[in-house]
Every structure is written in C-alpha cells, then in structure tokens.
Amino acid sequence: MRAAINGPRMALAASMVILLSLVVLDGMVNDWGRLAGGFDNLVLFFHQSLWPPDWSVLEPQVYPVCTARAPFEFTCSTAWIGVIETIKIAFVSTVFGMILSLPLSLSAARNLSPKWLSYISRFVISGFRSLPSLIWAIFFVILIGFGPLAGVLAMSVYTVGYLGKLQYEAIEGLNKTPLEAAEAMGLSKMEMAFNVVIPESANDLISHAIFMFEYNFRSGTIIGIVGAGGIGYYIDLYLRFLQYDKVVAYLIIIFVVVLLIDFVSIYARSFFNDNDDLRRPTWLDVFVPEALKMGK
C-alpha cells in the first residue's frame, strides 16, 4: 500500500535526497580549494574584463559601409543585425514548426485519432523534442553548412516537438460533447478537425504559438554559437577574441530584448483567453510582478 504523505516523513525524505545530492557532488569535485579562489578570480575578472560593457557593439560596423542616416546608424551595428536575425529565425521557425505540428498533434490527440496513429505521432513529436535546439543546430550546420537556414531548420524541428505537445494536450483537454455531437452527425475526422477542434481550441493554439515564438527567440540566441545564425554568432566571435566586455554588452542587450518580447507576449496572449469578460491587463500589470502589488 502507498504510504500516506505526512509531515515528518516528507521532511526525512527531503533531507535524504539533499544529502544524496551533496555526496554525489563531492564525488565529482576533487579540489574544493578552487572554489575559494573562485570568488577572487571573479572579482578580478569582473573589473578587468567584464565591466564596463563595451557599447561599441551598438555602433555601425566599419564594413560594409553604413547607408542608414542619423539617428538610425545603430541599425548597421552588429548588435542590431544579430538581434534582428535572431528574431527573424524565431519567427520563421515558429510558423514552419506550427504548420508541421498542427497535423501531427491532431493525429496525436487520443480523442480524435485511433490509438496506433496517436502512438506514432506522439513518438515523432517527443523524438523532435528529445534533443535541445542547440544539438539540432549542430546537426543541421554539419548537414547544410553555416548560416541562418541551419538555425531555422533546427528550431523548426524543435518547435514541432514542443508546440506539438502543447497542442495535443490542449486538444485532448477539449470538452467532449462537441466531438460527440459531430460523431453522431457522422462527420469525417477532417471535418471534425477543421470545423470543431481547431475553432474550439483556437485560443490555446494562438496563445501557444506566441509563447513558442518567445521561447524560440530565447533559445535562438544560443544557436549562433555553433554557426546557425543570429546574435550568438557575434557572442562566439568576441568570446574567441577574449573581448569579454563586448560579450557582456550583447548579453545585456539580449536580456532587455527577451524582457520586451516576454511582456509583449504576455499582453498578446491575454487577448486569446476563453474568458470574455476578462479585464485586459494594463501595462502596469504586465510590467510589475503580482507580488510587488500586494500592498495596494
């Protein structure tokens, strides 16, 4: 019989797990002394190499010659070019990924498809998801060479895996009476998919796609490191030249853009909510975390 959950027993179990993790960690580390030196290193490294960030990354590149006029010269900067390319890669791969994931998730949903089809589709979806997009990027760079196309393919594949799962779970969560009504009418599976399932889950599908774009931008920053396009390329470049102050500037820019995209995504997704009389979030709601507003 399963043991009931109770306070002391849970506490004992939790302490054992923590203890175990410490033992495992100790097994992997052979010189704890390095940790003590680590902090001093960090302080030194921070002052000598990281700070202040080198904002020259926002200035136009020397070559090719910048044709933009003031105050838009920054659009010729590596930071701008990189960020825009990452956004483009994220956008295209979200759209391509969704085109592929929708039919897959419709055939993966148990309330719509026969068992065998749902197993096969789930297998494909989780296969795509099992490798992170960075690994897919390495794979496609080897396959088709450096550049944004490798990035688009890598992130599209991962999008199919991730978005597909979100989608079939949304579809399986649908109320079953509309499907029963359609079944009693004798509709084909295609008609059920197009006329019942997609309209009924449209809010979730759109909201997941927006979330996926946001996710793809974040993971898209890293794939440039393996040569698959986007801002990661420049980060990799300056890491190799040990110009850490430029790297820090890129990281700060990425952080700001990720925040912006997150906020826009939260706001956009609030429009695709089942609740009609929902109050739209104000920009204040979006920017200030709930916890900080408790005092109001």
């Binding site: 109320n175 009476t177 509309p178 029963e180 009504a181 009693a184 009418m185 509709l187 449209a202 809010n203």
Partner: peptide, 17 residues
C-alpha cells in the same frame, strides 16, 4: 452521415465559433 440530428443535453456546440 447526417441521418441523425442529435441535440445533446450538454449541447456540444463549438463555443468559440
């Protein structure tokens, strides 16, 4: 197909359409 018109107790409408 189409021979049975069913009005379920829980209606089964596509609510968002």
């Amino acid at each position: 197909r189409g021979e049975l018109g069913y009005v379920p107790q829980k209606l089964g409408l596509v609510r968002h359409a």
